[in-house]
Computed example of a mutant assay.
Amino acid sequence: MSEPTTQEEARPGSSASVEFIGEWYRLDPSKPFEIGREADLDIDDNQYLHRRFLSIQFVDGLWWLSNVGSRLSASVSDPSGTMQAWLAPGARLPIVFALTTIVFTAGPTSYEFTIHTDAPAFVDSAPQRSPSGETTVGAVTFTLSQRQLILALAEPMLKREGTATSEIPSSANAANRLGWALSRFNRKLDNVCDKLSRAGVDGLRGGAGALATNRRARLVEYAVLSRLVTKDDLPLLDQSADED
């Protein structure tokens, strides 16, 4: 397994490095760097996490991120959060930003790490917000209560300080946080997932019995990385919202 380095050792003069919970790992272009339960970056002793989940490798002049697992997916985002890719098992994509954020969920726990390269960053605009408190992402508009639902699920991830792991609340706990009946929470969760699915967001729909847990994690990953909700929005959880 690779030994972590300090930020000062990893960043200057290196073409790429990985940061996870304050530890830095310089990437070697001559060999893959693997991330998982038993890998170069040993994320966590989590039975839901693959021993080898993600791999970073330098090929044809580019750093590539590959999903070498069989079940889990990862969300990949640029610094502004306006570009996001969903890396499914067997897929790979080039790392073209100076800073790339990767978030994934294994069981009830979400993890986040960053890849730093010498490539230039892209600058994009953030999601637009209307004076009424509604949020628009592309052609999708969310009401206050829908944003509250997203915030209730994303609250632990938005509040995390000095850590790259967080727990995704159950539907019952998120509904209790909002003071809603579980039936109301589930109905609004369906509406939010349907809206984002129609807008092209992957991983929020599935067959009967599928994605009951995973879609909550996927929703949190998308909402946080795309800046659909931020830490500054958390006070909205205590506002009163009419039934939609």
Rank of each mutant, 00 (worst) to 15 (best):
Q7R: 08
Q7C: 09
E9T: 12
E9S: 07
A16P: 06
V18M: 08
F20I: 15
I21H: 02
G22E: 02
G22Y: 09
E23W: 05
Y25Q: 04
R26P: 02
S30I: 10
S30P: 07
K31G: 05
F33C: 05
L41Y: 01
D42K: 07
L49D: 06
H50R: 01
H50C: 03
H50T: 13
F53S: 00
F58V: 13
V59F: 03
G61R: 07
L62W: 07
W64R: 00
S70W: 01
S70F: 01
A85N: 12
W86F: 04
W86T: 08
L87T: 05
A88Y: 03
P89T: 00
L93W: 03
A98G: 15
L99W: 13
T101Q: 04
V103R: 04
T105M: 07
T105G: 01
P108F: 01
T114R: 11
I115F: 07
I115L: 15
H116V: 14
T117G: 01
P120A: 09
A121K: 07
V123I: 15
D124R: 06
D124I: 15
S125I: 11
S125V: 13
R129T: 03
S132I: 04
T135L: 12
T136S: 14
L144T: 12
R147N: 07
L149W: 02
L149Y: 09
A152W: 09
A154D: 06
L158K: 00
T165L: 11
S166I: 01
P169I: 08
S171F: 02
N173H: 06
A181D: 12
L182W: 06
R187P: 00
R187K: 15
L189G: 14
L189A: 11
L189E: 02
N191F: 06
N191D: 15
D194N: 10
S197N: 09
G200W: 00
A208H: 07
T213Q: 03
R218W: 05
V220Y: 05
E221L: 04
A223K: 01
V224E: 07
L228K: 02
K231D: 12
D232T: 04
D233M: 09
P235C: 02
L236V: 06
L237W: 04
D238L: 11
S240Y: 10
D244R: 13
